[in-house]
Nucleic acid binder design. Structure first.
Lengths: 198, 198
DNA sequence: GGAAAAAATTAAAGTAGTTTAACAAATCAC
DNA sequence: GTGATTTGTTAAACTACTTTAATTTTTTCC
C-alpha cells in the first residue's frame, strides 16, 4: 500500500497524519470526493459565487486573493500539494465568496462538498478531530503571519518568507510573492538587489 | 436554569451555541475547569513559559502581544467576555510561548489544561466539534484581518475596527488600539483628529 | 521558433506613516 | 484628594515604501 500510486494516496497520507481510518471508512471517505482539474489562470472560485467545496491539492498551486478598490491584488494564501484550500466563510455560511481562487499552475484538487462533509462528520466523527487539527495548524500559521506583518519591515518579511518556504521562490512569480507579503513588486525587486549585493 | 447565575453560565451558554450537552456531560466538563483571577497589568503568560491552559474569559479584558527588537508592542488579539484566549502553539506543542498575555482590566478566566482537554475529547467527543467550530470562526476572523492589513490604509483599518468593535473604543486605551491596527499612537491620534473634523 | 504578452529591473519623484520631542490631559495608587 | 505615572496631542523633520514610467528580460502560446 505504501508504494501504490492512486490519486488518493496523498490525501489518505494527509489524513493518516492525524487520525486512523479502517478500510470501510477509507472507502466511504473516498466515495465522497470528486476530482477536478483547474488549468493555469482558471478560477476555482470568484467573489459573489458560493464556495461549494473544500479542496485538497493533489498537484499544482492555487492562490486565494482579493482585489482592492484600486484594482490591486492581495494574496491571502497560497496553496500547494497537500494543502486544503477554500473560502471557508462562504463554504460554511453558503454566502457569496469574497475571494478569488485561481491556479498559478495546472492544478488537480479533490473536492468535498458541504452535504458530503456533514455526512462524513456524522458517519465518521473522527473527521471532526481531523479538521479541527487541520484548522488549528492553519490558525497558528495565520497568527504568526499577522504578528510578522505588525512587527517586521518589508525586508524582514521577505527574508522570513524565503526561509519558511524555500521552494516557493522557484515556483511563484515574484509579483505574487510581493502581493502576499504586502509590498509592491517594484519594492521587492529593489530589496532583492540590495540583499544580493551583500 | 436560564436565569441562574453561576460563574459557569456564560461558558455553558457559549458551548450551547454549538453543541448540546446532557447534565452528566455538563457536570463532567465543569469539573475539568479551574478559575483564575488576573489583576489588571498582571500576566497570564509570558514568552518562554509554556502555555498550560486554554482560557475562557468570564469577565474582563486580555491582550495577546509580542514585543519586537525595538521594544515596541504588537497586539495579536484582544479578548473580552465570551472569548477563548491562549497561545495555541505553545499549548499544543508544550513549547515555550512566543506571546505575552496580560490583563487590561481585572479579568476572570476559566481554564482547562491540556490533560483535561484531552480527557474531555476522549470522554465527550462532541467537544472535538465544539472546538473545531470555535477555531473555524477564529480562523475566518484572522483571515479577514490579514486581508485588511494587506488592502487597507491605516485610516480604513481604523474605521473598520470601530465599526466591527464599537464598544472596544470605550474600553481599550487608544495606544493599544494602535498597536493592534499596526500604526503608531501618534498617527492614530492624527487620524482621529482629521476624522473628527469631517 | 518567433511575435506578443507578462514579469522584472531601474531610477526619480512623491507620500503615508514614523520619529522625536515637548506639552496637556487623564488615570492611577496611596 | 493629590502627586506621580501613563496616555493622548500637536508639530516638524524624516524615511520606508509607493508611484510612475521607461527599458530589459522572461515566459507564453500558436
Amino acid at each position: 500500500m505504501l508504494t501504490s500510486n492512486t490519486p488518493f494516496d496523498l490525501i489518505l497520507q494527509n489524513i493518516g497524519k492525524h487520525i486512523t481510518l479502517d478500510p470501510t471508512e477509507v472507502e466511504f471517505f473516498i466515495s465522497l470526493l470528486e476530482s477536478k482539474l483547474i488549468r493555469r489562470k482558471d478560477y476555482l472560485l470568484q467573489p459573489g459565487e458560493i464556495c461549494k467545496t473544500e479542496n485538497f491539492i493533489v498537484k499544482g498551486c492555487l492562490r486565494t486573493y482579493s482585489v482592492d478598490q484600486d484594482g490591486v491584488e492581495h494574496i491571502v494564501m497560497f496553496g500547494i500539494e497537500d494543502w486544503w484550500v477554500g473560502d471557508l466563510y462562504s463554504f460554511l455560511m453558503a454566502t457569496p465568496a469574497q475571494y478569488y481562487i485561481d491556479a498559478l499552475e495546472d492544478t488537480l484538487v479533490l473536492q468535498i462538498n458541504k452535504q458530503n462533509l456533514d455526512l462524513l462528520y456524522e458517519r465518521v466523527p473522527k473527521f471532526e478531530r481531523f479538521f479541527r487539527l487541520i484548522i488549528q495548524n492553519a490558525f497558528i500559521a495565520q497568527q504568526n503571519r499577522i504578528n510578522q506583518n505588525l512587527s517586521f519591515t518589508a525586508e524582514q518579511r521577505y527574508l522570513e518568507f524565503v526561509k519558511k518556504y524555500p521552494h516557493f521562490e522557484q515556483r511563484i512569480p515574484q509579483k505574487q510573492v510581493a502581493a502576499y507579503l504586502g509590498m509592491t513588486p517594484v519594492f521587492l525587486s529593489m530589496l532583492r538587489r540590495k540583499l544580493a549585493g551583500k
